[in-house]
């Protein structure tokens, strides 16, 4: 049972980016312009805060990135399952994939009742203590 996963096309780009920047992480953004999109940064470039929620890792054994979101935003998002996808475009934040002419984006669905029954019992992990 995972809260977040990554599409095969997005994982290919994540691997390419890992080859350039080393280990990576995602932080889901909110707000203006390029907001409501996942930001992909070199691991430890962005300081994960104690109030950030760790939703899980995306990727495979070869390339695995933790995915975080601010705790306050998570309260509004927690009932939805997220998939990191990729589309042609040009983000305006500091996300590493933008120079490739592509942008990571989130696709969402609601958790099914049986999924939610499991997740509800699981502790929400915050900060980097995972």
């Amino acid at each position: 049972m995972n809260r977040v996963e990554i599409s095969p096309e997005a994982l290919l780009m994540l691997k390419k980016m890992q080859g350039i920047h080393g280990a990576l992480m995602f932080h889901q953004s909110g707000g203006c312009c390029d907001g409501s999109s996942p930001m992909c940064y070199p691991l430890n470039d962005f300081k994960v805060g104690q109030a950030d929620v760790f939703l899980g890792f995306v990727g495979d054994e070869e390339c695995r990135a933790p995915f975080y979101m601010s705790g306050s935003q998570f309260e509004y998002w927690k009932h939805t399952h997220l998939t990191v996808d990729i589309v042609p475009g040009r983000g305006s934040g500091f996300s590493v994939e933008a120079p490739e002419g592509v942008r990571f984006m989130i696709r969402s669905r609601l958790f099914e009742d049986n999924e939610w029954a499991i997740l509800e019992k699981e502790p929400v992990l915050t900060g980097q203590n995972h």
Binding site: D34, G91, S92, G93, F94, S95
Partner: peptide, 29 residues
């Protein structure tokens, strides 16, 4: 691009202030 040009500007020791309009995660960064 943000990662190639914005980041060295925002993290430069040679600016006395940075002004940004954008979204929350980049704002935190």
């Amino acid at each position: 691009f943000g990662v190639e040009a914005g980041k060295p500007l925002a993290s430069s020791k040679r600016v006395a202030k940075i002004a940004f309009t954008g979204e929350t995660t980049t704002g935190r960064l």
